[in-house]
Design a protein around this nucleic acid. Structure first.
Lengths: 377, 377
DNA sequence: AGGGTCGACTGTACCGGTTAAGCATCGACG
DNA sequence: CGTCGATGCTTAACCGGTACAGTCGACCCT
């Protein structure tokens, strides 16, 4: 059944007209058969399917998009400078999750990297007008975010990764950041920490605000002394604020970082300053990665299954495109993985609270502890 | 000149028919005008351009692709497991470079993540048949690589990132890995190292072989004792081989890693084993990243401007698609950035050779030292 | 036998662009 | 004054699918 290629140079593409000719039926019949629509006898359908397979036929995506008004592609715009983008495993993990879901339903993924939100919105307008994508995934929701209204106005199907608030009428998938922050603070408090600092990311992002508010509220509730500094997610900036914090007359005994780059940079600074971790200061990272596990001591960190989050975002988007189902939830829960960078604060009496084993190399399988709550509306 | 939107719900897309109606000309005239083709008076062209701008018109990409047989999109398949993919800044940097070049020429980028080379080839066949992309970028060239022949057979325009050999008739862009290896070995030799190990990546990749051969040749030339171990690029695996190397009766005094994840993991193991870096052992990473700079001490590493490499690959692909120009070179040179993880081997007499400043925090601008040689054929 | 229904197809318009061919109009030129 | 050629535009076919309105024969019912 192998088709031999006699000509040299590029092969000519097979169209349904070729199949129709060979099967002795009309183009319409072929279309019905290939799309599993009724009105074709089982025998004819079988014959057409066999021929199309023999010919190695795939539908011309442009032709299909033109007549069916479906591009069979989704879009993702990355609106952070390439420098920070490249170093956050978060993006690639998300991408991998999104792609896994889309390609399993043979939908393509088109991506574009831009400089700012303004450019991002321009891309949405263009994609919409060009019919290039059927829907988009929106990342890094801001506290006031012009993208939501823009997308609503275009009527472009979209799923926001972030929230739960501020997503307007759009579908949304988010992770329970507030819950994870509370868990981290309680954990550090149990170890005896009383002065905890948070090294946050860009304050315009909604998740930064959510985490900061949860942090301050929990700290206040436990009557602990808190401090919040913001960064641009870069190692340089994480190193700088860590140096500043640890140079203080009464430095915090624990620091919680907003991503893994910042945490690794913070650990580097502690070493550089001759401090022992976790004896002199405890550090907690956000978003586990190969790096947080590779450094020494391995970083205590909050993990979320970002791949799964990407998969659910993509799945929600396809549901929206195909059936108009608006997903208003789809929460991925984070979990704290204690490793080697957290312990009792300096000068604390040992005894009452159970300290984590230092440098404990727990199994990666712990990540399976992640749960996913899914509600639809 | 603002157009007010009165209707609620999704806006209707503007087509050239709408523009033609408004301008009082035919569809064909509008098409000529918008594409800058001759046969339209300057006045009419101006009028049509103004109207299309007022209407916010963009060409329906499907319609254009169908008639012009140009998808105005390129493809990139990532064929490594998501786990390793997510943690190599290399990919995102490459992506950023590719995207910068493509979007500046308003060409889209479609990506797909697959498990193996077989699946990757299937994607190329499908993309080709679907007309979904005009060309592809091929990564991680293997020593024997079935993808090259597959792509040649399809007549699909492609640029291989890797080489210079084994790329058949395809365009290629590569980095001078052999040269960088020689530089690293010479540098370590000058410091007095006599036993150097190389922790390599996947041996099937051509660049792994190129680096290993250059390593062994240079080591032999200098009559030094060498050792090569392979890994799967994961931190786990890098940690394991480092532990093995350093536990040896006569351990190497310097280790050269094949990427940044491996190097960071190696540094973690050295710390874990109570070794001081660079006093007890020197480490060199490959592909600089935020992490190599964030750890303590900051890693000596080979840098390449991967973003620029991506840009040149994309640019070569567009040249191939538009004008059929086959680019057979476009070399990005790597450069060694000495930082804090390299020094004299233990027990070496100090004096004759100049030791690098330990922990030297050199400027990022050093990366500008990268050069790019471009030849066309 | 005549009419109705159903299944299995065919014919064709259409999606929104591109482009070859055709056709006025006009100035220039022999 | 007729004709030639350039200019500026129109017409219509075409790209490769989808989908709706028919057509046609077989079968069923009364």
């Amino acid at each position: 059944m192998e088709t031999v290629q006699h000509e040299t140079g590029p092969r000519r593409r097979v169209t349904i007209a070729d199949i129709a000719l060979r099967a002795g039926v009309s183009k319409g019949a072929v279309s019905y058969a290939l799309n599993g629509k009724p009105g074709i006898s089982e025998a004819t359908r079988r014959r057409i399917l066999d021929i199309s397979e023999e010919f190695g036929w795939y539908p011309n995506s442009a032709a299909r998009a033109l007549s069916a008004a479906r591009a069979r592609a989704c879009g993702l715009v990355l609106a952070r400078p390439a420098r920070t983008l490249a170093f956050e495993p978060f993006f690639m993990q998300l991408l991998a999750g999104i792609e896994a879901e889309l390609s399993s339903r043979s939908v393509g993924l088109t991506i574009q990297v831009v400089d700012d939100v303004e450019a991002e919105m321009a891309v949405y307008r263009r994609w919409w007008a060009e019919h290039r994508v059927d829907g988009v995934l929106v990342k890094d929701l801001r506290i006031v975010d012009p993208r939501v209204e823009q997308i609503e106005q275009l009527g472009l199907p979209a799923v926001v990764i972030g929230g739960p608030e501020g997503t307007g009428s759009l579908s949304a998938v988010w992770s329970d950041d507030a819950g994870a922050v509370v868990e981290v603070v309680r954990y550090l408090a149990r170890l005896g920490h009383e002065r905890i600092a948070r090294v946050a990311g860009v304050p315009e992002f909604l998740h930064t605000e959510i985490r900061t508010e949860a942090f301050l509220a929990t700290m206040a509730e436990l009557s602990l002394s808190s401090q919040v500094l913001t960064t641009d997610y870069m190692a340089e900036s994480g190193a700088q604020v860590t140096r500043q914090l640890l140079s203080d007359r009464r430095p915090p005994t624990a620091i919680v970082y907003d991503n893994d780059v910042l945490a690794v940079a913070g650990l580097g600074v502690a070493h550089e300053m001759g401090l022992s971790v976790p004896r002199d200061v405890s550090l907690v990272g956000w978003d586990d990665s190969l790096y947080t596990q590779a450094v020494h001591p391995p970083l205590t960190a909050v993990t979320r299954d970002i791949v799964v989050m990407g998969m659910h975002a993509a799945s929600a988007l396809l549901a929206l495109i195909d059936d108009g189902v608006v997903t208003r939830a789809g929460e991925v829960c984070g979990q704290l993985i204690p490793r080697g960078t957290t312990g009792r604060p300096p000068g604390a009496a040992s005894g009452s609270t159970r300290a984590p084993r230092p440098f404990a190399r727990r199994q990666r399988d712990e990540r399976d502890g992640l749960t996913l709550n899914r509600k639809s509306s």
